[in-house]
Amino acid sequence: MDAIVDVFPVLIKGVEITIKVLLASIVLGYLMAFIAGFCRLSNNVILRKITGFYVEIFRGTSLIVQLFWLYYALPILFGIEIGSDFWAGVLAISLNYGAYMSEIVRSSILSVAKGQSEAATALNMSRFQRMRLVIFPQAVRMMLPEFGNYLILMLKSTSLVSLIGMTDILYYGDILRSSDLSQAPTVYLLVLVFYFIIALPFIWLTKKMESASKKGVASQ
């Protein structure tokens, strides 16, 4: 028990950074997902190809490599500084998961029955109206369960930012461990519990999103 009392207040200092990185990544990640998802459905070939290139690059390599590349390599290559490790971390996570989620956006929109768009055309709706009023509301409901899963994946990936020196929960855990190795079991177990507690609302939200997407839809 004593060990927990020692460790707890240190770890809690990292919660703020973890949550900040997580929230920024969620907002940017979803934004990226919708932008890239729509761009891949665009009529413009160049736009489609560029977005496709972005999606394949970020899905084809691993997040930790992207993070290191943004943090160590990008500033050398172009001589630009991203500004802070915070933005390097948030950018890596949101670009990576944005790429994955853009595929969900794209496939959900494509899987809305064709008759819906034909009916909307028959009602003399413009292209934009069709998307906004008919296709998109039906597509969003299909995206929900997957989007929920990605919340938890993004939370888990925020632990990587400790590797570029950000002071998140894991960072403080590592400091405690290096000062006293015998504390390691308490420290890491507590770190895991911290992440799990942060994850609980997201697990609940995912279940909610899943049931929301099923509501009013006949099961096959």
Partner: peptide, 16 residues
Amino acid sequence: RSTPPLVQLFFIYYAW
């Protein structure tokens, strides 16, 4: 499932 694999790695390597 809901906790980071990175921390789990550290747990097994350093804490176990």
